[in-house]
């Protein structure tokens, strides 16, 4: 084995390079802080592999270009940050309805409205509850390091193709802007049969990709079919546990906050407090069954988020009745320090 290639890159560039490692040849986007290094990198490097980069006139156009490229079976991506992701929701709904794969990156910032450019986890509901109209789901992956930005982006393309479904990477400004050394993989992009792809009806019957079903019963059937698919996605559940073996209390956090609170948990351990971490990596499907089983051993959970309370609902829905679920939320504006989160752990730990 040759020595792994390590490079110092920022989180956004890691996503762009993950996309290229996954064989993504098409990118469509519109500039917005704090994710501009993604389009900047791809505008420079996609031409190397005969790929296509389009800076579209809007986020709406970008998502629909993604829909079009995805419809041909090509690996394609768009990225944005919160306000731009709101604009993409219609397209995501159509992609889910027409079962068109594609990767959407949200390096989220703070809202509501124009909000600000500081990190936030205020888009959890939007990402995991559909965001657009209709009863659909998007696979949502939440990295917590620059390395995971890279690895999960590669994975996102495989999941999108496997399930014929949009997949979202939900990061934030912190994960986009920070630099860390990462190990680059010599990735062989996954190969998926795409008999449904629109390529011109040569030597086969014409086919179409659509989400409109007006004949009686058809839409019901279509929705049940999608539901079955969402059930199957549970096979993809991914999570991390840290120091939970003997824990009296388990902190539940995702993304950048999970990263910060790991240090706080170490501080708590040094003080003799038996605290561990449960970090969902797939936010949809949420690791509810794992958390439920954990709640049979541990009865105290502490959800910590960079918002005023979103994922905590999933924690409450997952754990057994009788478990205590505490919450600490931080609205956008400042990033909590390990010390501050340690103080919050101390307040609820007993």
């Amino acid at each position: 084995m040759s020595k792994p290639k390590v490079e110092l890159v920022n989180g956004n560039e890691a996503i762009a390079r993950g996309a290229m490692a996954a064989g993504c040849k098409f990118y469509f986007g519109y500039p917005i802080t704090p994710q501009n290094e993604i389009p900047e990198y791809l505008s420079k490097h996609l031409p190397d592999i005969d790929g296509t980069f389009i800076q579209a006139e809007s986020e709406i156009a970008s998502i629909n270009m993604l829909l079009g490229a995805g419809a041909t079976g090509a690996r394609a991506m768009t990225s944005s940050s919160s306000p731009g992701i709101s604009l993409k929701q219609e397209g995501i709904s159509y992609m889910a309805g027409s079962e068109i794969p594609g990767v959407i990156v949200n390096m989220s910032r703070s809202g509501p409205g124009l909000g600000g450019i500081s990190p936030s986890q205020g888009d959890y509901f939007q990402a995991t509850r559909g965001g657009g109209h209709g009863d659909y789901r998007t696979i949502v992956l939440a990295p917590f390091s620059v390395q995971e930005n890279y690895d999960l982006t590669i994975k996102a393309f495989d999941l999108a193709d496997q399930y014929r479904n949009p997949v979202m990477i939900l990061g934030d400004a912190l994960l986009g802007q920070m630099k860390e050394p990462i190990i680059l993989r010599d990735n062989k992009p996954g190969k998926f049969d795409k008999p449904w792809a629109l390529t011109g009806a040569k030597n086969r019957k014409p086919q179409f990709l659509k989400s409109l079903y007006l004949n009686e019963g058809d839409l019901t059937q279509h929705n049940w079919k999608l539901f079955q698919k969402y059930q199957q996605m549970k096979a993809e559940i991914q999570y991390e546990t840290y120091r939970i073996e003997d824990a009296d209390m388990v902190v539940v956090s995702f993304g950048s906050v999970a990263r910060i609170i790991k240090s706080s948990i170490n501080m708590a351990r040094d003080k003799g407090m038996k605290v561990g971490l449960f970090r969902p990596v797939t936010l949809y499907p949420y690791p509810e069954e794992i958390l439920r089983r954990l709640s049979q051993k541990v009865h105290h959970f502490f959800a910590v988020e960079l918002n005023t309370g979103q994922m905590v609902e999933d924690v409450k829905l997952s754990v057994d009745k009788g478990s205590r679920v505490d919450f600490y939320g931080r609205p956008p504006g400042s990033i909590p320090t390990p010390n501050e989160l340690f103080d919050e752990i101390q307040k609820v730990y007993r």
Partner: peptide
Amino acid sequence: DVCESPHGRAAAVATGI
């Protein structure tokens, strides 16, 4: 072969195709 587009977005969808 036909790809349905959201209302108004056909030119963007066609661009991707």
